[in-house]
């Protein structure tokens, strides 16, 4: 019943958002949560193809295997893909190394998300965030109202009772919809296992070229990663618990090469998955701040 309940709730959310949207879009970040969300959308609208496009905000710094997986899933689903890169950022040479993760995230992720949303006039935007990820996310609504400019104000959130979602908005306002709100990391993995959902191979342990940065292993995914003096890539058996921009995503040493092994490892994990994301560790309330500015 557990999965039926979770799945049924998510499908209800996806259908409800779609039924009330003028111009919906699904944010697709290629990671495991996006993969589950996409799968749920396909189930929600079966036998129809999900009637909205996928939006991938491309920082140009994603893992190569993520791009390959994205293209494969677009072909398989028959959905339309919109990719957007903040060309102003590219022209200014913004990268995760010289500009620091905060500025980089702001320009290449937050701004790069807001721009296509405005450009295409999307009013309802699906995102794969979960409440168990982080404390300020735990207070997020399933249908999250955003004022013009995509700003999130935690003090003026609409009350959300039962499964009655208020989808009324005015011009310039938007709603972020989070169908996976009530899923945990373990739920995601068990569901991927149960439904045989394809995921990026980077989640599986494999020998990869990495360098040690702080507490994390950073993968040398292409030749753009500047090596610090004395730093030489070494081959380690690693996997990723979360996927993002490769220079900012830490791998963990692991021998889990199958889904079963990943689930076993997740179940007995002693650190949270977001630890692999360097951008969260800046300050205690950094996620709340980023969300207020329009980040997912």
């Amino acid at each position: 019943m557990n999965f039926n309940q979770l799945e049924a709730e998510s499908i209800e959310i996806i259908r409800e958002a779609y039924a009330n949207a003028a111009n919906p879009v699904m944010l697709y970040s290629i990671g495991k949560d996006s993969s589950v969300m996409l799968h749920l959308a396909r189930k929600a609208f079966f036998p129809a193809i999900p009637p909205f496009p996928l939006l991938h905000v491309d920082t140009t710094w994603k893992f190569l295997e993520m791009y390959a997986h994205r293209d494969r899933m677009v072909a398989e689903t028959g959905m339309k893909l919109i990719t957007y890169t903040n060309q102003d950022g590219v022209a200014a040479g913004v990268n995760p190394f010289t500009h620091g993760s905060t500025y980089y995230t702001d320009v290449m992720k937050t701004e790069a998300l807001k721009k296509p949303l405005d450009m295409y006039g999307f009013d309802v935007i699906f995102g794969g965030a979960r409440r168990d990820e982080e404390k300020s996310r735990a207070k997020e609504r399933i249908f999250s109202y955003r004022a013009p400019g995509h700003r999130w104000d935690p003090k003026v959130q609409r009350p959300e009772l039962w499964s009655l979602y208020n989808t009324r908005i005015k011009k310039g306002e938007t709603i972020r919809v989070f169908p996976l709100s009530n899923w945990t990391e373990l739920d995601i993995w068990l569901y991927i296992y149960h439904e045989k959902i394809p995921i990026v191979p980077l989640y599986f342990a494999k020998e990869r070229p990495v360098v040690r940065r702080g507490d994390a292993w950073i993968m040398v995914d292409d030749d753009r990663l500047p090596l610090e003096p004395g730093e030489t890539p070494e081959i380690r058996m690693v996997r990723f618990r979360t996927l993002g921009c490769y220079p900012l995503t830490g791998a963990v040493e692991s021998s889990s090469g199958t889904l079963e092994e990943i689930i076993a490892e997740t179940f007995s994990a002693r650190t949270s998955e977001r630890q692999g994301r360097l951008i969260d560790s800046d300050q205690a309330a950094s996620m709340e701040k980023k969300k207020a500015e329009g980040y997912f």
Binding site: E134, K135, S136, R137, A138, K139, P154, K155, A284, A285, E288
Partner: peptide, 9 residues
């Protein structure tokens, strides 16, 4: 652990 918003903390 549970008071998530900055104002709450």
């Amino acid at each position: 652990l549970v008071d998530g918003l900055q104002a709450e903390r």
